[in-house]
Simulated scan of single mutants.
Amino acid sequence: MRYLYSFLALTMLFVTFGCSQSINSGDIKEINGYWEIVKAKLPNEEEKDYTINSSIDFFQIEENGVGFRQKVMPQFNGEYLTNDIQEDLTVEFTNEGTFLHYKTEFAEWKEEIVKINKEQLVVKNENDIMYYYKRPVPFSLK
Rank of each mutant, 00 (worst) to 15 (best):
L4Q: 06
S6R: 15
S6F: 15
S6W: 15
F7M: 07
M12N: 06
F14H: 06
V15F: 15
C19P: 03
Q21A: 07
S22G: 01
N24Q: 07
Y34N: 03
E36R: 08
I37G: 00
K39G: 00
P43C: 03
E46C: 03
E47K: 09
D49A: 04
D49E: 04
Y50N: 00
T51C: 05
T51Q: 10
T51E: 10
N53G: 01
I61L: 14
I61V: 14
E63N: 13
F68K: 01
Q75E: 12
L81W: 10
N83E: 12
N83R: 09
D84R: 04
D84M: 06
D88P: 11
D88L: 14
L89Y: 15
T90M: 13
V91M: 15
V91Y: 15
E105I: 14
A107N: 11
A107W: 15
A107L: 13
E111W: 11
I113Q: 06
V114Q: 07
V114E: 01
Q120P: 04
L121Y: 12
V122K: 12
E126M: 07
D128F: 08
M130F: 14
Y132W: 11
Y133D: 00
K134H: 09
K134S: 06
K134F: 10
K134Y: 09
K134V: 03
F139L: 04
